[in-house]
Design a protein around this nucleic acid. Structure first.
Lengths: 154, 154
DNA sequence: CTATATAAGGATAACGTTATCTTCATTTAA
DNA sequence: TTAAATGAAGATAACGTTATCCTTATATAG
């Protein structure tokens, strides 16, 4: 698995938020329901995205979470820097702490171009591109079919 | 991180074994020392590789582990099928249980070609190719510099 | 002002992976 | 036949990630 659960939830939540009207804050509870993700855990993740500068949060009635201005243009890479840590793009397939062109594991020079493909994808893919894709109705953010739109049934 | 610790240790151990004379069994203890990996844990991993058909094991004095005939030609993919499970090559970036061309996550069609690069690499890379690379002395299997050859200092 | 709805923050628990320990079985050498 | 060296197997522990719970702070509606 490439991404941790935390990262998967974070990306799902951000895409979902990018499909919602920017005017009103989105509730943690609603995101959790739509995505079928544990709400208390999602809370923590959204809080870290607030700290990371991608979201605003508002407490109290009518509170919730909003994408910060420009956050729809954030790349997946930017999101993953927050959720996976800065060393995310550095990692060696074999797990060596030091693996570079100078001190390389035997997979290094095979892995570098493939890793580049991955990083290019993550750099190139922005939240709004994914949100627009989801809005076409052709794609799913969660395993729950058709959970993203329509009324919330508690 | 793409591979679990278990997989990393397994691949490292197999490559190391492929650099050793095929005649004599290699000791779990020696592999662990060479790679700087916890020996009891490595035992479990090697045992699973025996069950998976990649290794022979011999108990008692002069015992140890040997690559089975032809195992040097095994690809990383074959190894990872054992250590990561059969669904390894199926996984969705966002973690959806069902994510295929029919029911796709919004990243699916971007991810498919990148995943193909990864799987091609894993299919194409065999243990002996990596072992030959290590034997040139230009590459490291572990973070311990120059640990692979020479006498074992207990 | 009060009730309600929300996020924030800290403590705790559940879980899977990683790692260790102990005992048993097997093989060889002397 | 005994001692030593090894792997096998099962139980247990440590750890990090994932998940939950409880209390507090904040905002709004009435």
């Amino acid at each position: 698995m490439i991404l941790s659960r935390t990262s998967q939830y974070a990306v799902q939540a951000l895409i979902y938020m990018a499909t919602q009207p920017a005017a009103a804050p989105v509730l943690n509870k609603d995101i959790a329901t739509r995505l079928g993700v544990p709400a208390p855990y999602l809370t923590k993740i959204l809080q870290s995205l607030v700290k990371g500068g991608l979201l605003f949060s508002f407490r109290g009635r009518l509170g919730g979470f909003c994408l910060r201005d420009g956050a729809e243009k954030a790349s997946l890479m930017q999101v993953l820097q927050l959720t996976e840590g800065a060393a995310f793009s550095e990692s060696c397939l074999l797990g060596l702490k030091k693996c570079s062109d100078e001190t390389a594991c035997p997979l290094h020079f095979r892995w570098v171009p493939v890793k580049k493909k991955i990083l290019d994808l993550l750099q190139d893919t922005t939240l709004d591109k994914l949100a627009r894709a989801v809005e076409t109705g052709k794609y799913r953010l969660a395993d729950i079919p058709g959970s993203l739109f329509g009324p919330l049934n508690p």
